[in-house]
Design a protein around this nucleic acid. Structure first.
Lengths: 210, 210
DNA sequence: CCGCATCCGGGGCGATACTG
DNA sequence: CAGTATCGCCCCGGATGCGG
């Protein structure tokens, strides 16, 4: 992108990460950790492959992403945020916080969805209300790949993957699950509109507000 | 801009304010308050005028900016952030915080500069270390238009304009002034490289870290 | 398969000129 | 003062190819 040509912190930040797709690439690397090129493509469904390659080169050049050749048996390239790149976390957090109200109307007809994208709202709005109790894990199914809610130190975090022995399993449409995890819809209301809870419902309630 | 087509808070936020120039328009409205079209142009020196008009229309349509006809004697259109638009403040703050390190190398040859752009670093890094004392005002001259540092409730804020009877006047190059106001350069070092303080130096020292 | 490079069409963007 | 109008360019998007 062309520079804005302004001696201003915001303008210089946008010079670095204001390009189309760039902040979403950062989101992927923040939420998923070090990733293969193909995994990045999967998390950015409509990106043109040359554009992803371009952006990764640019980010590497600015010192926000590093590339490393993983040894066998992985034997592939991994893209990883540098410490300076990870400092963009708060920017993504505030962007996500501001964007939450735009989620209440639900997905458009052809919107893509990945459940781990909900990590940002979870970190913001969910807390473990019984931190003295043993930790719980709740599997969430809202799309293809399952994700897991985990407690630790009073916090709640969402990570990609399946749980071995989850205390509960929450399933529903992206729209409803997003409402529950962003705290804009009660679990009771969610169940009314089709969400399902298997296992210990209390394990889930403990993480939700109200 | 085309939508990213993702049911994700960050992606939807970027759908709304990810266009080129948009966040800088928000910056202007946040720092300057309700502004005329011409004032916006002056704070965004290289924007194409049709693009500014387009962006303002878009922001109006999304409910982030409102347009009002000011009564005489102003008799002009004013653009103002809506409450929802003002909620972008934390996004700009985090972007600015992340961008501060990009300022230390100083402006490029042909970079534009407006002193009130330094409001963001000031809000972040300066505090009044003697809030029990009477308030002070310090005029800062780093470009064409002067700006004023003011204390209040332990905070320090920078606003466009001149001071009537400033307790001190700080002048220097944008590079050096930015270093001082962002807390990355001591006042003593700044003076060594050409900054000047007139009036009560203590009034200024009281606002600076260290 | 993985990690790109290349090619091409369309549209957003940039610069200038002009207007009520 | 507050914008339109116009035009050229380059970034972006989508498809395809290609070496390791």
């Amino acid at each position: 992108m062309r520079s804005y040509g302004q001696y201003c912190a915001v303008a210089r930040a946008l010079d670095a990460i204001g390009d189309r797709w760039t902040l979403l690439i950062i989101r992927e690397l923040l939420l998923r950790g070090p990733s293969r090129y193909t995994d990045l493509r999967n998390g950015l469904p409509r990106i043109a492959t040359n554009l992803l390659a371009d952006r990764l080169r640019g980010l590497e050049q600015e010192g926000l992403v590093s590339r490393e050749e993983a040894p066998p048996p992985v034997a592939t390239t991994l893209f990883r945020l540098t410490p300076r790149g990870e400092e963009l976390g708060p920017v993504l957090t505030e962007l996500g916080r501001w964007g939450i109200p735009l989620m209440v109307e639900g997905p458009n007809e052809d919107d893509d969805f990945r459940p781990y994208w909900l990590s940002l709202p979870v970190d913001l709005y969910l807390t473990d209300r019984s931190p003295e109790q043993p930790p719980v894990t709740v599997e969430v199914r809202a799309g293809d790949e399952p994700v897991v809610l985990e407690t630790g130190e009073g916090k709640v975090h969402l990570r990609p993957g399946a749980a071995e022995h989850p205390d509960a399993v929450l399933s529903g449409t992206p729209h409803v699950i997003a409402g529950v995890l962003a705290g804009t819809m009660s679990l009771a209301d969610a169940i009314v509109v089709g969400a399902k809870v298997d296992g210990k419902r209390a394990a889930l309630q403990r993480l939700l507000p109200g």
